[in-house]
Design a binder for these strands. Structure first.
Lengths: 232, 232
DNA sequence: AAGCGTAAACTAACATGCCACTTAAAGGAC
DNA sequence: GTCCTTTAAGTGGCATGTTAGTTTACGCTT
């Protein structure tokens, strides 16, 4: 397939060029369109996007500090591969932050926040009934996002997203398993219940147990997609 | 004082120019040599450092994504000011990560790790006896750093440092208080004791209580240094 | 004297040229 | 056929020219 253009990076975004290039590349990497290990040729990117090397270099630099790209000094730059240890670390960090967040939300939750979470959980049930697993996935993401938001700490939301980028990317490789959405929803129910009765410790425990399911399912991916992983 | 050269940024560092400029500026900002609100003139920096605009622009870009400088789009770039809400958020994040870290360490600590922490705590006592508060400050930082390291998660150490940069900077404004080092050491003793007896919950509680002291002391700084704070 | 409009000075952002270094493949020697 | 050498392509890093936008300050008008 000599057509390596792999879908067009559109400049329908807004902001400075460097920002737009960064966002476009980031999205492609996070949704696994750009596969781990793929070489990013700077010249080709410049030509394909119709911009000069400056914004591309800036974007690649930021992606590098995000850990999404490995820059080999005078040689090449490629989409970073997964490493099990790195995914474990991100899982640890994500759990630390989300557990602390849910505890705070459980303590201070308002009725409105409770209503929104309850509504989301009911939606999850409907989507499972309809077997709309893509929709459930999005509702799942929303559920966690709402809890982070309800801390009232906008920077916490950003930090949580930033510190688990590899995890987010690896999650795209997970295949749908039969009973999984229902199990996840049961976890969510336990979390919401703890928030409802304002029991921070129960919320912590429920969130912790829930998040540990993800890394357990991600670890075996190394055997299924060996080329996506770095075997150090 | 027209001598705005404010101490020379030395190129005694190693690595690429951009990295050196970044590190030099970062250090100056973190140790409060460059005060919050100060305008960073790119041209002056280039001339003073004897480098071109490229590495300086790269360094400022990285500092901007670190939140240490504010770049006003086609106008100027200045050292970022503190904001109480931002400091609260960083304190929350730091507590989330360090509490999770100390719980893990308490569960899995080795004898060697215990020995190193114990040795550090004894050093803290000696430094307090000698009234070497600068030395105590460094031992304090080491103590927390060691706990993060002992998780075995190198990325956690980096993330913890990266997410509390403003906190680290604001801490420089704190004036030495008479009984404070002794109190801090008592907290450290409680933390170490929980690690010793491998009680994760006690370690969590002790670390949490300890870290909440810092933000309590930082909040009042807004009244003492109003020009350093952003009053949104 | 006060208010307004204009122009000059500064900036960030982007484009481009250059160089030193790494890498890999092509070609020659054995 | 194998090994070594060399050469060409690609890259990161730095310098510099150009452009567009913002701010400031000066001077003109009223």
């Amino acid at each position: 397939m000599p057509d390596q253009t792999l879908a067009l990076d559109i400049d329908s975004l807004e902001g400075p060029l460097g920002q737009r290039v960064y966002t476009a590349l980031r999205n492609k990497i996070l949704d696994m369109t750009f596969e781990p290990g793929m070489v990013l040729r700077k010249g080709a990117l410049c030509e394909h996007l119709g911009v000069s090397r400056s914004p591309v270099a800036e974007a690649l630099g930021r992606l590098s500090s995000d850990g999404l790209v490995d820059i080999i000094p005078q040689s090449a730059t490629r989409v970073s591969q997964f490493s099990v240890s790195e995914l474990r670390e991100e899982s640890f960090l994500r759990e630390a932050v989300e557990v602390a967040a849910v505890a705070k939300v459980a303590k201070e939750r308002t009725e409105e926040q409770l209503t929104k979470l309850t509504r989301n959980l009911r939606l999850q049930g409907l989507l499972i009934d309809d077997q709309d697993y893509q929709g459930f996935f999005e509702a799942d993401v929303d559920f966690h996002h709402m809890i982070l938001e309800f801390t009232g700490y906008p920077k916490v939301v950003l930090a949580a997203g930033q510190m688990s980028l590899q995890l987010r990317r690896a999650r795209m490789l997970l295949l749908p398993e039969p009973g999984r959405p229902a199990d996840a929803m049961a976890d969510h129910h336990a979390i919401l219940n703890a928030i409802n009765v304002q029991d921070p410790d129960a919320a912590r425990a429920a969130m912790s147990a829930h998040l540990r399911q993800l890394i357990k399912r991600i670890i075996p991916l190394e055997r299924q997609h060996p080329t996506y992983f770095r075997h150090v």
